[in-house]
Write a protein that binds this DNA or RNA. Sequence first.
DNA 1: TTGAAAGCGCTAACAC
DNA 2: GTGTTAGCGCTTTCAA
Lengths: 341, 341
Amino acid sequence: MATIKDVAERANVSISTVSRVVNGTATVAAAKRDKVLQVMAELKYQPNSAARALAGNKTGMLGIVANDLADPFFATLLKGVETEARQAGMQVLAACGHHDAEQEEAAIRSLLSRRCDALIVHSKDIPDQQLLDLLSECPVAVVVNREIPEIADRCIWFDNLAAGYMATKHLLAQGHQNIAWLGRNQNITDNVDRYIGFCNALGQAGIDHNKAYKAFGEATVEGGYQLAYELIRSKSEVTAIMAYNDAMAAGCLRALHELNYKLPDDCSVMGIDDVILGLVVYPQLTTVNYPVEDIGRTAVKKALALLADQQLEMTNHFSPKVVIRGSVASLRKSVLRKSGS
Amino acid sequence: MATIKDVAERANVSISTVSRVVNGTATVAAAKRDKVLQVMAELKYQPNSAARALAGNKTGMLGIVANDLADPFFATLLKGVETEARQAGMQVLAACGHHDAEQEEAAIRSLLSRRCDALIVHSKDIPDQQLLDLLSECPVAVVVNREIPEIADRCIWFDNLAAGYMATKHLLAQGHQNIAWLGRNQNITDNVDRYIGFCNALGQAGIDHNKAYKAFGEATVEGGYQLAYELIRSKSEVTAIMAYNDAMAAGCLRALHELNYKLPDDCSVMGIDDVILGLVVYPQLTTVNYPVEDIGRTAVKKALALLADQQLEMTNHFSPKVVIRGSVASLRKSVLRKSGS
DNA sequence: TTGAAAGCGCTAACAC
DNA sequence: GTGTTAGCGCTTTCAA
């Protein structure tokens, strides 16, 4: 590949002049500039990013560490990050944490070693303090979906408690009382917060959450399927299911179909996350929107602002919004239907 | 961040020695090596990749250009690529083509400028010749899901024709005759090949494909939903629907549910791709497996082999496999059910 | 086994 | 406006 020197020689100018027309850092006589441009095209010159990074002390790269790139959730986050980064002329370097503390650390380290100008980090498995240590090596780091008090201004998270609360409220508003919680059997904060929101909403409605129906399992379609199948067979009085996330809710719908429930009248199902799965199932899922792509974009904006030393005030906290589709029915209908059949 | 010089000074050795222990390129006296290692840890030394790339003329980066990172299909491809790359100690640089020729070219150029050691390219919108030109700038490039005669040995693709053929055969084997094709209204090769496979299978069964039921629209859940809804209302004699992909098939199932069809008995639905959507819907989708993750991994392996100048013979062509789940019923059942209701 | 030194391709002063 | 030059942090001969 051609270098800046090749271009300079062929265009009869110095390398600085070439550098100037490439970067637009200073005015260059029109004639020379045109000549340089022409030679660049002839030689298919592409500046060497490594050399640039070394000399200029910035790489133009934005690192992102996520858990699993194939997961729709992370894929959407990545998309948001990529979109925003590209607009700023930056490239995205992706590394996978694979839901494992050691690999998460390795991922961050490798990104650090690449001297990304900024890092967007989604990490659940590394403890706060260790994460702080790691990130202290990085000029700019924004943490996504996690709130670390020491760097709260560089965190962006979703209000999971409000999500659980609002979702449950929606179910209660439709008249449901016998609401089951289909939870995740892993104590990450998302899960705990959503569950607390659920309990709060029940409590406010005068329902003792200790007596509520609950089942815990894997936060996957399959997990939701199995839990719901068991639950419904033993507790047919349940009229609504509040699932930890859309994946579980989707599994839940499948279980109900298999049990020949007529949906949504025989049983309502509510999810949280608002991922594409919810549009695919029948009935389409009533859920709570989790603006992942937005979060990704905001994270990049924040990182960029930090890089530019701007004290740009921006929300670092996203609120949930109920998305009404077809999987929740009002209790009245459900009861009528049940007594009629 | 600490540099190699810092480490050298503090460890009382030359930078060459540090370089040697970092890279293991030559034996270093045990005592010195330990000292260097210790200082490296103290200083949290991370080699600067840009400097390394510049001096060593290799970046350790693998570039991938895909269309839409949030699309489950590309996300899975990316995952395969990342997994394999990481095992080889390489990092993945992702760029998005956004289904647009110009942006695809920009994506490739930016990856080129980063001096990725190898490129994995998924591109549908750039014409063959132009793509060849672009890729000629790159030491190693592997093209995925596309067959370009000039570089056939560096292409990896899926046999879409066989996929359409096998899927349709499966439907025919269940006794279906009135099979509708739910196609994509865009002439990319995937679509055309699958459709030809469909026609071939019908032809072999003595059915004139010109008289077959067909509808074309967007290759999305929504597209499948709309097409199926219209089609079924006007052509109730259709007993099976062959969809271009799983997304359309999923939309199709939703339409049938809304029309109060009992699935799969009243109408069978078959997809192609075998993405996660198929596990979420009810009934779960009978489809044809498209081993994307495998393709991603194989692409990386091929790229790595090319980098190492190995003439590693490997398949560059993946064959489809039917995945039987719940969305296809045998015609007999369907007919019985129809006449009974 | 070790160190000195010459680049890799570029940016950013600094002179003119 | 333009050219000269000193690095950026590393790898890799080449001597010792």
